[in-house]
Design a protein around this nucleic acid. Structure first.
Lengths: 210, 210
DNA sequence: ATTTAATAACTAACCAGTCAGTTATTAAAT
DNA sequence: ATTTAATAACTGACTGGTTAGTTATTAAAT
């Protein structure tokens, strides 16, 4: 059985996005080094030569894939949350809900990729940490501090709490992208986030324990 | 300037452990594919040929590194926690403290490695999930259920809570092993775990919100 | 002297990146 | 309308560097 090559097509506009999508999928599945450019090209329905028409190197393709995916999500959440006039509690819930939703699509994949390849792309890691991670954390810390100031929350280390609040959905997102078959997670990131926030606000103890 | 080769030594017993240690460090830093066997060998103070005296392939070395590192930690915690007669609250604190400590040494590195390479080593991932992850989670769920049964905790989804409780130290451990310089975390895993558990038990709300 | 741990030079395969050639598409000319 | 010429998107065979794995040789240890 012979694979019949599809008829050649010229689609200059669609190629880069298709190649990036293929690259993201394979990088995520196998890691950067283990992913062959031939595979990416085949997956995108082109040949390796075409990839090099649009991206100067494998590394450039990797960086483009990361940036193109993150960029669109960056501003949306921040604006949605900062414009609200509700209580800190409510705004925290809204923010986490937005994050949980966006993680479902692509961000989890990116997070995993960045962790796996951080050692090989230090400059890209730097960009990611500064532009995505610290910016997100700053937003969370702001909301937590607002809650403390308004008397909604007891005084507490806001940086520590921000990291704590984020951890479950971030790790679960990575987890689901990694061990979907071996360790399936039945509930959604939104459910998990709601569950965690409810506990954070109210605790689980029936009587006082300290 | 010429590098003077060290005098040859015959240390049959020490070699495997040294090679595994070097491999773990480099796999963790650069990922499996990007790590060269020559580098591992040089780091371990031997040459590539010597590596092949003790490990049949790069993949075998990778698996050995994972297993040798996990195995010793596996039984210790479970026994320490299960033998206790204290309250569920106290046992949960003890268990998480033990986990946090063990993560500091090596487990964080393993967790990150497994996530990064899961796609390339499905059988190893299966072993890891079944032997390490599910076993740990089962222990946590057991303690949580004991707390619910004893009236210490309000009724709650134990599986969800187990994942939630674990997330911060797991993610922070991965994070620290990945972004130590770019996004340093000032407090210890034990501090973070204590902080999170305190909130889980008591919440942060000053007045009732729900 | 014999054994064997360790070496270092070697091989074979793989893969990122190149480029000469092919074909789809556009448009000018008839 | 049809043919023809020009353009540029796309291909796939090739190459050079790299690296997992092998083996003939060396030297440490008994």
């Amino acid at each position: 059985m012979q694979i019949e090559p599809l008829p050649r097509q010229r689609r200059k506009e669609a190629r880069p996005a298709e190649i990036i999508e293929a690259a993201l999928l394979l990088f995520h599945q196998k890691g950067y080094s283990a992913t062959k450019l031939d595979d990416i090209a085949r997956f995108a329905g082109v040949t390796k030569g075409t990839v090099y028409l649009y991206f100067s190197s494998k590394e450039a393709l990797f960086k483009a894939a990361i940036l193109e995916t993150i960029q669109p999500n960056l501003d949306r959440i921040e604006e949605a949350v900062m414009s609200s006039q509700a209580s800190a509690t409510q705004r925290l819930k809204t923010a986490m809900s937005s994050w949980a939703s966006s993680m479902n699509e692509c961000k989890g994949s990116i997070t995993k990729l960045m962790i796996a390849e951080a050692g090989n792309f230090p400059e890209l890691s730097d960009f990611y940490i500064e532009t995505v991670v610290k910016r997100s954390r700053k937003l969370l810390i702001h909301l937590i501090q607002a809650g403390i100031d308004s008397g909604e929350f007891r005084p507490i280390d806001a940086d520590m709490l921000a990291r704590t609040i984020f951890s479950p959905i971030l790790l679960t997102s990575i987890w689901r992208h990694t061990y979907a078959k071996l360790d399936p997670i039945t509930y959604s990131l939104n459910q998990l986030s709601d569950f965690h926030l409810d506990i954070i606000f109210n605790g689980i103890a029936l009587s006082e324990q300290s």
